[in-house]
Design a protein around this nucleic acid. Structure first.
Lengths: 293, 293
DNA sequence: TAAACTTGTACAAACTTTGGACAATTTCCC
DNA sequence: GGGAAATTGTCCAAAGTTTGTACAAGTTTA
């Protein structure tokens, strides 16, 4: 998807980035950036990446950073005061989303990914942001529409990440949520961390019927099924041992059972806690113990 | 499969591709493309492939790529095996997804984006693929899990595209689905095309309660609310005039009302058909007519 | 024969390039 | 605080590039 070929003329960049052509040329002279390709006749040809960089820089300038510093910050991936911590970025992300400013959100996330490893971005930027927005919604401080927009946007961002992260060689897993579950993002983050941990992950999205999970796991020879549960209700409505024998190993993660691991055992599965990082760890242990790895 | 025989005269290409004959000849001289066959007397005879290529190039130019670069990009996308048409890519995408091979799917999509403009990829690669998988599911040829995995994956891909596409300056719109609607992807594609048409689009994801849509549209000063409806049921369960006065203009698109526009009028909204491209067009007309643009 | 197409050339409008200049800030230093 | 120095965005003018269209004179098509 990303295309680094220079295809945009300076006028096009002028429109899209909102920077005058004169300024673009001056920056190139003064800071050596951007340095677009040239047509045979010498006209500048900017790439998609250039455009994105320019938008970042423009935003920083609007926030009060000196232009020379903003360019430098982009080139070095550093802020003036050192990398901005995940907490700050998380708050900024929240603020952008509540304003319904997805462009700003995109900028914050892209800065976050440049400054921090993916795990940190997911756990310390995106997750807290989602939690705060969820809490705000419960308190009536955040409207349903704001909550929808935010979680839809972040879900898309996480899934983009998941799609981009190529498959691996490890054991095959199937990831979904418990039936009836409304919250997809937990399972998405789980899938992300499991893929990161080296598993081959088939992410089915939320709400796959159990019978279909079972046959799919069989067809793909999955070693385990991993289900996310955020709402306690989704546990209660399931019959006894409903999860047993869906696959060689069935595990559940998520907030729903945090207080009560027994409710999961009752369904015939193992509860592996609420933290996706730990879940990946515990799963490896469980798989080895069961002789499946 | 592909018909590479030259059959179209330059005048026919002029009409079908929307490029003047003089320009076609100049491109051939300047860029060496297209290089159609010739009749015994020397008249140009363009093939179906040429025509499609020209349409793609024109689309790229419309998206802001410099003409010389658009042609170059097309020629570079042409590898040894020749340009694979959207139909082939769509079938390959389907096949990869049914195998649950998201890595292969990612490769197909990335090739598609390199070879074809975004609009073509969405309408002629992704949409048909989704439709075939949906049909296959109804016929029992595709399992629920396969359908879940596929639509989840493609939804992520489309949303990544939406997030990447920066906001615009045009009138503000709010996009969601009708309440109770299970199919998100229609609204996602609609949002994509509207953003490409220059609107400022707030995409809320599926299933936003109508009251929240209304207050959100007011807070963001949206000119219109655009709702997607794929399942007829979602129409029937709504009370009379339920959509009236949610925003200055309320429109509905999607398959659900294809046979019966009246069912939408009954709800107090306008029906704008099933094609997202046409929807963007009709919406502009409607906005202008209502004096909102 | 009329309409359509060919080639080659020409051309104008829109855009870009370079290097230098300049006024308005902002920063630095005493 | 106040003046010097650096920074920054904008503007200019002449030369060059890109791009779509137009015209003339001859050929092919139907």
């Amino acid at each position: 998807m990303r295309n680094d070929l220079g295809v945009y003329t300076i006028a096009e960049v002028e429109d899209r980035a909102g920077l005058s052509s004169a300024l673009l040329r001056q920056w190139e002279r003064r800071y050596g950036f951007p340095r677009p390709e040239r047509s045979p006749g010498g006209h500048r040809l900017y790439s998609e990446t250039d455009l994105e960089a320019l938008r970042h820089i423009k935003q920083w300038i609007a926030e009060g950073v000196a232009p020379a510093q903003a360019v430098k910050r982009y080139l070095e991936g550093l802020t003036q005061e050192g990398p901005r911590p995940p907490e700050t970025l998380s708050l900024e992300l929240e603020e952008a989303l509540l304003r319904a400013d997805t462009e700003a959100a995109e900028r914050v996330l892209s800065e976050a990914y440049r400054l921090h490893p993916m795990e940190t971005v997911v756990m310390d930027v995106i997750s807290p942001c989602l939690r705060r927005i969820g809490d705000g919604w419960h308190l009536g401080r955040v409207t349903t529409a704001q909550e929808h927009l935010s979680s839809t946007y972040l879900r898309g961002s996480l899934q983009g990440l998941l799609n981009l992260m190529g498959g691996s060689l490890g054991p095959t897993l199937v990831v979904s949520t418990l039936p009836g579950e409304q919250h997809e993002i937990g399972s998405l983050i789980t899938a992300l961390f499991l893929r990161r941990a080296g598993y081959t992950v088939h992410y089915l999205g939320p709400n796959t019927p159990l019978a279909d999970l079972k046959s799919f796991a069989e067809r793909t020879e999955a070693k385990a099924i991993v289900l996310s549960a955020m709402q306690p209700i989704s546990l209660e409505t399931l019959p006894h041992q409903a999860l047993r024998h869906l696959a060689p190993l069935v595990v559940v993660g998520g907030r729903a059972a945090a207080g009560d691991p027994r409710s999961i055992e009752r369904l015939g599965a193992h509860y592996l806690g609420n933290d996706p990082r730990e879940l990946a760890e515990s799963l490896s242990v469980a798989l080895k113990k069961a002789g499946l790895w």
